[in-house]
Design a protein around this nucleic acid. Structure first.
Length: 817
DNA sequence: TTACAGTATTT
DNA sequence: AAATAC
DNA sequence: GTAA
């Protein structure tokens, strides 16, 4: 996977490197940093951590811990370390570099603008160039270098992964690649400095260095209020005393971070169980307490929370007390999943990526054969006992497992002793979607996948690459919150951010990822687990893991604190204003809508968009959509009773509110939209007279002039007549002849991702889908550029189109992707 | 490195 | 032809 | 952003 790494350009293709700052990509700088971080920091850091108390106690404990420090824990630690890289440690050369070209590109332009930074705002570029610039610039988006560096970035291909150092680490990927695999992560970043000495002290180390550290008085500075991560919590320890030295230490430390040490279990919010105890040992103590919200964790939990200065998720496997019954939703869901196997329970979807099958188009027949197989396979898959015993999984091939571990620790089955939910979760969809062509593949592959190892390469069938083949329902109202609710929430925030920023592709990528996450039955906790899901790649998987283990996402914090251009954000929401115009205005110094009204030259539509800015950016309640729709239908029926009007858009998908109201106008017997034009004109006139319509944004006019057809769509604004202060609403009419009704329905029902995936699928199958119909034998040239119109195969019947595409029928309400 | 849907309307 | 919208 |  080749990638591009941004470089700062000078004439000889070297970088401009301020001597005082280490620069990613600079071999010297990078290696220097790396060397400092290379040493496994565990001892040093742990000692730093305990230093204020008792060095020897710490050492003792460390020795003790060292024995049981298996690779798994090491991973976790590295993981967390990565998440908590102090951003301040990043090289800050940004302000130092002179910018020969100004103004610097707007942050948004860096991502999506069609105008490369150096070309200036008004230089139009071809779409290709724009795309080109965009994808490159997108890569360097958040880099300080890129931000201020308006020097034309020279993008040099490298063999490493392409972007990660920008976002995640100061160490260039290329440099990291040279490290032993097991160390790569740990080099990512130094630990947060917890010791009073601060970060300067915390770097290199050997156990010798550590033993030299001077003892410090415990009377260290108080932990600032903000760092009191345990504030409001009360810990009950088992055993609940501080006779043991290390436990005393831990208790004291927890107290320092705001925890209260309670002697009564009933008063506790957390139970911290000594690591030598299992649930059986403490059962008597705990079960006496009826407090169900009690959090039971092992002694590692508080330590690591402090370590990373945040509240980690207590329900992680590594904090679990051995033998503790799992009383979380995950198990409940899993159980429910394995029992509810209604063969057609709807949103069926596959979540496991599978090997691509080149052509599954006419695979419908293979269903029977596959289902036979499936029946023999599925039960095995679903039997919890089948895969629970982990020793078996590993014992068979322990050596290679271990070797692999050394080379690629990610492959270690982290959740090995986890409950079986992870294996069960795939089953329900398998049974639930017997008709899907891709089902066959799944049934076949799974056993193989399963028997080998958890770390399978991500695979997916041809069919399954298309969202239209998967489920997707509106966020089920009142539905028990998804196990991944928090993850989804955070990712949605990221998605919103990219929407604000007008980063089309990232926005849709996030939407897709969220959709697949939403379909998961179990909680996705590890990067590997996440990565196996469709539309979740390496970077999102990492983010997911970060969210799960730290309950937040640094990238989001960063995004939200970014001084994003408020003005641009505002302008982009004006009807008729896109990135191009908004950027231009901002660069001209306009900052508010008033500025625009007074100084900018606006098109008619833009003026409406500004004057009714708030109205048009307010969502329309479903109830009002109904009222508006009824009003139109009534008038239409008067004009021509044979006319049929249907409300499409998100309304048809069952949304509680919509951004606009979409009306599909048709009439039996019509074969072209032109036949409906006279009617619509009459209707519009009447609606204007009735004070229903208040503005026209796009009429059914010139379809690029000179052409024949009058056009088929009308955009405008309407209000609910009679009502005072009624908000202006966006309303669209689409004229559809009966012969194209099905295709139009698909088009106007959406959602957009569903439509696009449908169209993409069509095009891959040599067909073409648009609002008029499904065409076949479309010749396509370079890329997939259309050469031939193709022959219309179906337009009238929505379901037929699904069939012809080989897509299982979905009700409109299930078209949220 | 490229594609990521395909079209209608305005400017 | 580009920008914008759906 | 992901996937090919």
């Amino acid at each position: 996977m080749a990638g591009f790494r941004p470089r700062l350009k000078t004439t000889h293709n070297d970088m401009i490197i301020p001597s005082t700052f280490p620069v990613p990509g600079s071999s010297t700088g990078a290696h220097t940093r790396m060397d400092a971080n290379l040493a496994e920091p565990s001892y040093e850091d742990k000692v730093a951590f305990f230093d204020e108390f008792d060095k020897m106690a710490a050492l003792d404990q460390l020795d003790e811990e060292d024995d049981k420090l298996d690779e798994k824990e090491r991973q976790h630690r590295d993981k967390c370390r990565q998440f908590f890289s102090p951003r301040t440690k990043k090289p800050q050369f940004q302000p130092k570099l002179p910018s020969p070209i100004k103004p610097p590109p707007h942050p948004l332009q860096r991502r999506t603008a069609s105008l490369p930074a150096s070309t200036g705002v008004n230089t139009p570029e071809g779409p290709r160039a724009a795309q080109f610039a965009k994808s490159r610039l997108g890569v360097i988006k958040d880099t300080p270098i890129a931000a201020s560096q308006t020097i034309t970035p020279v993008l040099k291909p490298t063999t490493g992964a392409n972007t990660s150092f920008i976002e995640e680490t100061p160490i260039p990927e290329t440099a990291r690649a040279n490290l032993p695999a097991t160390l790569r992560r740990s080099t990512t970043m130094p630990l947060p400095d917890l010791s009073p000495d601060g970060g300067a002290e915390q770097s290199p180390s050997a156990s010798t260095a550590l033993r030299k550290r001077k003892r410090q008085s415990p009377a260290s500075k108080a932990i600032p209020e903000s760092a009191q991560i345990f504030k409001g919590f009360s810990f009950y320890y088992i055993p609940n005393n501080d006779v043991a030295r290390t436990r005393k230490l831990r208790i004291a430390k927890a107290q320092e971070y705001g925890a209260q040490w309670v002697r009564e279990l009933s008063a506790a919010s957390h139970v911290i169980v000594d690591k030598h105890l299992s649930y059986g040992d403490i059962e008597g103590i705990i079960s006496a307490n009826s407090n169900s919200s009690l959090i039971v964790v092992n002694e590692e939990y508080p330590i690591e929370c402090i370590w990373f200065r945040t509240l980690l998720s207590p329900d992680q496997q590594r904090y679990r007390v051995p033998g503790l019954p799992i009383v979380k939703e995950s198990i409940a869901v899993a159980g429910e999943a394995s029992s509810s196997e209604s063969p057609e329970s709807e949103p069926s979807s596959l979540q496991i990526k599978e090997v691509q099958k080149p052509n599954t188009l006419e695979s419908t027949q293979r269903n029977e054969e596959a289902s036979a197989q499936r029946s023999s396979v599925a039960p095995e898959v679903q039997t919890p006992e089948a895969q629970t015993p982990q020793p078996e999984r590993t014992s068979s091939d322990e050596l290679s497992e271990y070797i692999e571990l050394l080379n690629k620790y990610k492959d270690l089955p982290l959740d090995i002793e986890e409950d079986d939910s992870s294996s069960v979760k795939v089953a329900p969809e398998e049974i639930s979607d017997p008709e899907s062509a891709s089902e066959n593949e799944r049934a076949r592959k799974r056993p193989v996948t399963r028997s080998t190892r958890s770390a399978q390469k991500k695979t997916i069938t041809f069919e399954d690459r298309f969202a239209c083949n998967r489920g997707g329902t509106k966020v089920k109202a009142g539905e028990e919150s998804n196990p991944n609710a928090r993850t989804i929430e955070v990712l949605q925030a990221m998605c919103d951010y990219y929407t604000r920023i007008n980063d089309h592709w990232r926005t849709t990528a996030y939407r897709k990822a969220i959709a697949t996450l939403r379909r998961q039955i179990t909680k996705i906790t590890t990067e590997e687990e996440a990565h196996r899901l469709t539309n979740i790649g390496r970077r999102l998987a990492q983010k997911i893991e970060e969210i799960v283990t730290t309950n937040r996402l640094r990238r989001l914090d960063q995004a939200n604190s970014e001084p994003l251009d408020k003005s641009l954000e505002i302008f982009l929401k004006i009807y008729g204003v896109g990135l191009s115009k908004a950027t231009k205005w901002v660069s001209q110094g306009y900052r508010t809508l008033d500025d625009l009204l007074q100084k900018a030259d606006l098109t008619a539509n833009q003026r409406i968009g500004i004057e009714r800015y708030d109205d048009l950016n307010t969502r329309i309640p479903r109830q009002e959509i109904i009222l508006l729709g009824e009003f139109v239908k009534r008038e239409a029926a008067i004009l021509d009773p044979k006319i049929e009007i249907l409300i499409g858009g998100s309304y048809r998908r069952g949304s509680d509110s919509s951004g606009d109201i979409d009306l599909i106008v048709t009439k039996p017997g019509t074969t072209s939209s032109a036949e409906l034009v006279p009617f619509l004109e009459a209707l519009l006139k009447k609606l204007y007279d009735k004070k229903f319509l208040v503005a026209t944004l796009a009429a059914l006019h010139s379809q690029s002039m000179g052409s024949k057809e009058p056009g088929s769509k009308w955009h405008g604004c309407c209000i609910l007549p009679g009502k005072k202060d009624a908000l202006w609403r966006r309303i669209d009419f689409l004229l559809v002849p009966e012969t194209e009704y099905g295709a139009a329905l698909i088009y106007f029902t959406g959602n957009d991702i569903f439509n696009r995936s449908l169209r993409l699928l069509a095009s891959k199958k040599g067909m073409r889908l648009n609002q008029r119909g499904l065409y076949r034998d479309v010749l396509r040239g370079k890329g997939r550029a259309k050469v031939t119109e193709g022959e219309l195969v179906e337009g009238r019947d929505e379901k037929r189109i699904f069939e012809l595409l080989g897509v299982k029928w979905r009700e409109p309400k299930d078209r949220w992707c």
